[in-house]
Design a protein around this nucleic acid. Structure first.
Lengths: 206, 206
DNA sequence: GATTGCACCAAACAATCGTTTGTTCAAAAC
DNA sequence: GTTTTGAACAAACGATTGTTTGGTGCAATC
């Protein structure tokens, strides 16, 4: 027989202290993401990250087997978040150009909100971690497929190169964190609108 | 009297051993630039650089007072080199669109030839070196003035935002090293042509 | 022929890096 | 009530980092 207090016959999958885990791990990833976005992967040391969550350096290795794996998961979560954000922005939008613009704006907003982590990590990562770099690229490739599809749906003049136009837009968007300043002349929506409008005026039919 | 071999009565401003200096310093900067472009600023250690030129780590400090200063000079030289390259590409080209296209192609070629050092260093450099970052940005600002002028000369529709269009083109160009592969479908000239042509078709008048 | 000074070597410096190991301690499971 | 386990601490590990210091050979100068 069991007392009411000890009652955990069922695995208690979401008890009063949230199954005692996952909680802290997510906070850890959030803080680490901020630091890596701000100071770069090499710039943010495990000691910095540990201090930011109020732990000791070694304790991080209970949650993640290595610094590379930490980045792997953070990068994956950020990319997934951006994918979800874009997906949501596309909901209910019908016209091909409207969809591309919505996606571009969502992408840009996601970049800024995450401290441009993806854009920062992307370019400078043939360091010594070539295998890691490859996985990060794979994570991004899935995300970029959405944009491939969006460009496929555009009504364009026959001489337009959809691939190159997509790379042009994507590059322009991903470079914005380099010059963008919060509260400046341009906001994310304006930037996305103008960039997409350029392509539309150049090659759009209809 | 002097033997023919020892002959340096005149200051010998460009003698057989090139004034004994400058020589090696330039080689040092070249090798360092390659390494930094390939592995990033943090990724390329002073020992790596020293080994690449066949010296010992400490010997580098005879030529440069610190690693930051080394990067400062390398970055400056790379930017100057790109400016010169663009300047030369503009020689004799009269039409505004032709000039922009020539500049874009030269910029892209310069990016690839230097291992994209500028594009690599640019985005990820709010690390701990905020003052250094500021100087690098200043070096680039002078260079970018050329593009500002080029855009100012373009015959554009009145609703066009020259600043934003320049940032769009510049971003698209600077992002190419992320996806570009030598021997792939696209070469620098094609990329530059298409990117500029997009803007021209969108907002060009005349 | 003696002296100067450039360009480098040789060897270490303290600091910081990612990581490992052993221990602790409260909460959960039995 | 005992055992197990999740989650962290405490303290160090070897390696690598940028940098400094003192010495040294050799070419150029007087």
């Amino acid at each position: 027989m069991k007392k009411a207090k000890t009652a955990p016959a069922a695995p208690d999958p979401d008890g009063p202290r949230r199954r005692r885990s996952g909680n802290r791990r997510e906070e850890l990833m959030d803080r680490a993401a901020e630091l890596i976005a701000a100071k770069g992967f090499d710039g943010a040391s495990m000691r910095d990250i540990a201090a930011a969550v109020g732990m000791l350096p070694g304790s991080l290795y209970y949650h993640f087997p290595s610094k590379e794996d930490l980045l792997r998961e953070i990068h994956g979560r950020v990319v997934s978040g951006m994918a979800a954000r874009v997906e949501q922005a596309l909901e209910g939008v019908e016209s091909p150009w409207g969809r591309l613009e919505a996606a571009a704006e969502a992408h840009l907003a996601g970049l800024f909100e995450t401290g441009s982590l993806v854009a920062i990590v992307s370019p400078d990562f043939p360091k010594g971690h070539e295998d890691l770099n490859e996985e990060l690229r794979r994570q991004r490739r899935d995300y970029e497929q959405t944009f491939r599809d969006l460009f496929e749906a555009l009504p364009l003049a026959p001489e337009a190169d959809r691939t190159l136009l997509r790379l042009e837009l994507f590059g322009a968007l991903n470079w914005t964190p380099v010059w963008y300043r919060d509260g400046g002349r341009y906001d994310p929506r304006r930037i996305a609108t103008v960039y997409v409008e350029t392509i539309r005026r150049a090659y759009g039919t209809g």
